[in-house]
Design a protein around this nucleic acid. Structure first.
Lengths: 142, 142
DNA sequence: AATGATAATTGGAATAGTTCTTGATATCGG
DNA sequence: CCGATATCAAGAACTATTCCAATTATCATT
């Protein structure tokens, strides 16, 4: 993870290799957009956005890039019901709250010191590789 | 919820109305299969199974029935990654552990007294309507 | 039991998101 | 520079699901 400050998206420096994955121009741009757009874009969102910089890129390539990045643990794929997958560069273990009113997806962190095994009755011998926590609801003014 | 003992599936009695939903023959059979097959079948699994009793039922009807049952809170729809939806008659709040080795899905209950708000840093004002917790991993012998 | 109104079912067509295929292009190690 | 390998592009193909229009079943009322 080599991103600099997310406040200055234009300055994001992306190395030519991340966790063993060759960072081609296409993968760089896809990754850059995920760093900038923190609103969990779909593959198609990324596609439309990346075309500004790489007008000849194809949707299939965007899918390929996203898959390669997911596979190498550089980004995460997030699924809501059966909607299109969304992608997220936040690698810390976290869940997602989907505001039904606005459609906005908020990252939701665990409170410090919380361990899944303390909360769930896991089947004996279960070794967890991946956790997905998704909440749906509304944000009401308080 | 009017089911009798799940240990004797053949004896499940299904009333002709559940939470305001007219229980047609098709819906009854779909619901009965979910009661019997506790292994989180897909719509297609249900379809193949229900055809044994209703040979003329269509896949669209199975989808309609499942949707109606979900809509009326009689069953729950469960999604894994982008795989086909699965359906589950366990209405208690619970998560799912997907064993990557066998493909089996286990229900995972919360430990007693656990409240989501104690565990997660929810955005202020968030009112949760629905929670989905899915774990992927392996079951190792202990 | 017949009637009209409403809801459910069917089968097939349509859709959306994603993956696959094939040939072209770029990149790497030597 | 050269061959081997990886990646890309464009479009076709695939899959799960939804939609559509026509038929059939059910309900409430008479």
């Amino acid at each position: 993870m080599v991103s600099k400050t997310p406040e200055h998206p234009a300055q994001i420096e992306i190395p030519d290799e991340i966790s063993g994955l060759r960072m081609t121009r296409q993968r760089q741009e896809v990754y850059r957009i995920l760093q900038q757009e923190r609103n969990h874009p779909t593959a198609n969102d990324v596609f439309m956005r990346v075309k500004e910089r790489l007008p000849h890129i194809s949707l299939a390539t965007v899918y390929n890039c996203l898959e390669a990045l997911v596979q190498h643990g550089v980004i995460r794929q997030v699924n809501f019901e059966r909607e299109s997958s969304r992608y997220c560069p936040n690698l810390s273990e976290h869940g997602h709250f989907h505001d039904a009113t606005t459609g906005v997806i908020h990252d939701v962190d665990f409170k410090p010191g919380i361990n899944l095994a303390d909360v769930l009755n896991l089947p004996p011998g279960a070794v967890i590789d991946d956790v997905e926590i998704t909440l749906r609801g509304k944000l009401v003014s308080i």
